Computed example of a mutant assay.
Amino acid sequence: MKTLAILLLCSLAVICLTSDTGSQPAGDQPAQEGLFVEREHASTVVRQKRAAAELSLTQLESLREVCEANLACENMMDTDGIIAAYTAYYGPIPY
Score class of each variant (00 low, 15 high):
28 D>K: 07
24 Q>H: 07
42 A>N: 10
23 S>Q: 14
73 C>A: 15
27 G>K: 12
28 D>R: 09
22 G>Q: 10
65 E>I: 04
39 R>S: 10
34 G>H: 09
21 T>D: 13
73 C>W: 02
75 N>G: 09
61 E>N: 15
37 V>C: 04
10 C>L: 15
56 S>V: 00
92 P>I: 03
53 A>F: 04
54 E>K: 01
7 L>R: 05
73 C>V: 09
84 A>N: 12
33 E>N: 13
75 N>Y: 12
37 V>K: 06
22 G>P: 01
54 E>S: 11
71 L>M: 04
15 I>M: 13
71 L>R: 13
74 E>C: 07
59 Q>K: 06
33 E>G: 13
12 L>P: 03
89 Y>M: 14
64 R>A: 14
12 L>F: 09
60 L>K: 08
40 E>M: 01
70 N>S: 04
83 I>R: 06
45 V>L: 10
64 R>F: 09
74 E>D: 15
95 Y>N: 08
35 L>T: 14
27 G>I: 04
61 E>G: 13
92 P>S: 07
90 Y>E: 02
34 G>E: 06
18 T>H: 11
57 L>T: 06
64 R>D: 10
6 I>H: 05
7 L>D: 02
54 E>W: 05
60 L>W: 01
91 G>S: 14
3 T>V: 07
78 D>I: 10
47 R>I: 04
14 V>Q: 08
55 L>W: 00
37 V>D: 10
46 V>I: 15
27 G>W: 01
94 P>K: 02
44 T>K: 12
76 M>R: 06
28 D>N: 06
39 R>G: 03
53 A>G: 06
87 T>A: 03
18 T>M: 11
17 L>M: 12
82 I>P: 00
35 L>C: 03
39 R>W: 09
81 G>P: 07
33 E>M: 05
63 L>K: 00
34 G>P: 14
23 S>K: 14
83 I>Q: 04
57 L>N: 15
2 K>E: 08
35 L>P: 04
54 E>Q: 08
94 P>T: 03
92 P>F: 02
50 R>Q: 08
15 I>A: 13
26 A>L: 06
85 A>M: 05
57 L>M: 12
53 A>K: 09
24 Q>L: 12
87 T>C: 03
82 I>T: 01
1 M>T: 03
1 M>G: 02
58 T>G: 05
51 A>D: 14
5 A>G: 03
69 A>K: 05
43 S>F: 14
91 G>T: 14
24 Q>W: 10
31 A>P: 08
50 R>P: 04
44 T>N: 07
71 L>F: 09
94 P>F: 05
54 E>M: 05
23 S>P: 01
39 R>Y: 13
87 T>F: 00
64 R>M: 07
92 P>C: 00
39 R>N: 11
36 F>A: 10
27 G>E: 11
15 I>P: 00
2 K>P: 01
94 P>Y: 00
4 L>W: 01
88 A>W: 02
59 Q>L: 03
92 P>H: 02
